[in-house]
Computed example of a mutant assay.
Amino acid sequence: MALPNIFRKDISEEIIQRINNLKPETQPGWGKMNISEMLAHCNVAYEMVYDNKHPKPNFLMKAIMKSFVKKIVTSEIPYKRNSQTAPAFIIKGSRDFKTEKKRLIEYINRTQELGERRFDKKDSHSFGKLDVNEWNNLFYKHLDHHLTQFGV
């Protein structure tokens, strides 16, 4: 079953509505992150696309990521609860709820506005070139997993 298309305006607006239903006091159904850390964690996927703040993996690490992690991240199979998080996605230090929420919404809107064509065969930070379906799964599945984690 195909995942909803995050590049469609109605789907991105649905995700944003779910984000807007979050409150600073929202508690997770599982996991260790608080709400602000989760939002910052979700922002990392977009930072790797738009911002040059995360070091790219070296050749060996990229080969390992492509061989063992890419399918987990880009397939339609949902993430398991409490699954391991990549080091770059581990949030250290406190984060501001409003700031992280605003950033995430801006990233989602920017991605939707750029559209599928901009992402088809675009080189990813860790996995090489991804097709539009892989990009969609990467973005949508991650957001849906964590929004579900926080009950929205």
Rank of each mutant, 00 (worst) to 15 (best):
S75Y: 08
I19W: 03
F68A: 14
R117V: 10
I64A: 09
I6M: 00
L147D: 02
S75Q: 02
D144P: 00
M65Q: 13
Y46M: 05
D120V: 06
N52C: 08
N58E: 13
E13M: 14
R8E: 12
Y50K: 10
K101P: 03
V152W: 06
K66H: 11
R110I: 13
L147E: 06
K129S: 11
R118M: 12
D144G: 05
C42N: 09
H145P: 03
S124V: 01
I64K: 08
K9A: 15
P28D: 08
R18I: 08
R8D: 13
M38D: 08
T74A: 05
L39T: 06
G31H: 07
G31E: 02
V49A: 02
E134N: 00
R18V: 00
K80A: 14
R8P: 00
I77N: 14
L39C: 02
I91R: 05
H146A: 07
K92A: 13
K92I: 14
N133C: 14
S36D: 09
K9Y: 14
K62P: 02
W30K: 10
Y140L: 03
K62G: 09
K23S: 13
K66F: 04
Q112D: 03
F89G: 08
D51G: 10
H142I: 03
D120N: 15
S126A: 15
G93P: 03
F59L: 15
I91C: 07
N52A: 13
M33L: 15
Q112Y: 07
F7H: 08
N5R: 05
S36E: 07
M48Q: 05
T99L: 15
L114Q: 10
M1C: 12
G29V: 11
I15T: 10
E14I: 10
N34S: 12
L3M: 10
K141Q: 03
N133G: 15
K56L: 08
P87L: 11
D123W: 04
I6Q: 10
Q84I: 13
I105G: 00
H41N: 05
M48G: 12
F119M: 01
L39V: 06
C42R: 10
T111I: 04
N21D: 12
Q17I: 14
L3V: 05
T26F: 00
T111Y: 04
P87T: 12
H145A: 09
N5L: 10
P4D: 04
N5F: 08
G128Q: 06
V49E: 07
W135Q: 01
I90G: 03
L114C: 06
L3E: 02
V132R: 01
L130M: 12
P78G: 07
F97G: 08
K121T: 13
N82L: 06
K101W: 05
V152I: 05
A88L: 11
K80Q: 15
K121H: 15
S94T: 14
N43A: 02
E14M: 11
F7M: 00
A2L: 15
Q149P: 09
K56D: 11
F59Q: 13
P4M: 07
R8Y: 12
S94P: 12
E25L: 11
A40R: 01
